[in-house]
């Protein structure tokens, strides 16, 4: 019965192509996927993972009424998180320092306001949003929700093993893939649909014109979930998608307050202080010349007219004070104090 429903709700063309539209071929595909997997051993090792079939009492309520609900949902952690307001904070894996900082800030401030941050635990924006939320969670904020595209015992990306464990420990990890599933490419759009289904609003922090985040947006629009976007420099390829969304009418996000208003939560009053020492003199000149896009030393020399000597002193000072960061040869401005 369950399989039949899933067969009907496979809206994603990639899924249909892979698994076939009819229940019989879907069942065959599941069987193929399970070959070589010692199911019993996996369940013993992952007894904490709960399974909820559609219609069961422990099936997540937000998904039950969805357009394309997963047939089965695997969960690890506390399912009560889903009773809170939920906001998806998503974006590209290849983010800039700016996007990373905004994602951390949004994750932190939303969680501090009691909103569960839903994201995909991927590299880049997703992970940054989760980290921000986890930090606020330590101070009484809402724990995050991670929706992943592999089995709950297959950590992907492996660099986020610590993040994965922290989200499972304090919040909720959720997947529609059986244990042992590897993160195949076609699972990611399906995962993004679950993120869109879970969220009360979707915030895109940084995304190029095409990509997984834009698919999440598409799915959110199908469900009448409001889509919000963080603007970026018009020349930054990483912000091409978000800027496009704003031009198409997405709500512009400057900080967590904009998001909270969109989902009808009263933002907490909280003064924000910047403990970093004020940049003065040449450091200030350099910071202004840097702006919000990555730049190299060559470009800064051209913009400020400073010689390499004083410029490098200013850069080293700004770096030490937490005003700018370096990735390879690129210098980037850091928006807020380090958390």
């Amino acid at each position: 019965m369950v399989v039949g429903r899933l067969g009907r709700v496979l809206g994603h063309p990639g899924l249909v192509q892979r698994m076939g539209p009819d229940p019989a071929s879907l069942a065959r595909a599941w069987k193929v996927a399970a070959v070589g997997t010692d199911v019993a051993a996996r369940w013993v090792a992952h007894a904490a993972v709960t399974v909820a079939a559609r219609g069961a009492a422990n099936y997540p309520e937000p998904l039950a009424t969805d357009l394309e609900p997963p047939a089965v949902v695997f969960q690890l952690g506390s399912t009560t998180v889903l009773d809170r307001p939920r906001v998806a904070v998503v974006g590209t894996r290849r983010c800039t320092r700016y996007g990373h900082d905004v994602a951390v800030e949004l994750g932190h401030d939303l969680a501090a306001a009691g909103v569960a941050v839903v994201s995909g635990l991927a590299l880049g924006i997703d992970g940054a949003a989760h980290r921000g939320a986890l930090e606020a969670g330590g101070g009484g904020g809402a724990p995050p929700v991670g929706v992943v595209a592999s089995g709950l015992d297959v950590v992907y990306p492996r660099r986020h093993r610590d993040l994965w464990q922290q989200v499972a420990a304090t919040g909720l990890l959720l997947s529609e893939c059986p244990l042992g599933s590897s993160p195949e490419g076609w699972r990611f759009p399906a995962r993004n649909r679950v993120i869109a289904a879970l969220a009360d609003a979707v915030v895109v922090v940084e995304s190029p014109g095409k990509g997984g985040s834009m698919y999440t947006v598409e799915q959110a629009l199908r469900r009448d979930v409001p889509v919000l976007a963080v603007p970026g420099p018009v020349r930054s390829p990483a912000s091409a998608g978000t800027n496009h969304l704003i031009s198409e009418g997405a709500v512009l996000v400057r900080d967590a307050t904009d998001v909270l208003i969109a989902i009808g939560v009263t933002p907490p009053r909280r003064p924000r202080t910047d403990p970093r020492p004020t940049a003065t003199g040449e450091a200030r000149t350099v910071l202004e010349a840097l702006g919000w896009e990555p730049a190299t030393l060559d470009q800064l020399i051209a913009r400020t007219g400073l010689a390499l000597g004083p410029l490098s002193v200013a850069v080293a000072g700004l770096e030490a004070d937490g005003w700018i960061s370096r990735s390879g040869p690129w210098l980037e401005r850091i928006s807020g104090p380090a958390r």
Binding site: R93, R94, C95, T96, R97, H100, L123, G124, I125, G127, A128, R131, S325, R326, S327, G328, P329, W330
Partner: peptide, 13 residues
């Protein structure tokens, strides 16, 4: 003396 191994920009997360 920048770190070419840090060319990996996405490693900020």
């Amino acid at each position: 003396r920048f770190d070419p191994v840090g060319l990996d920009a996405a490693a900020v997360a």
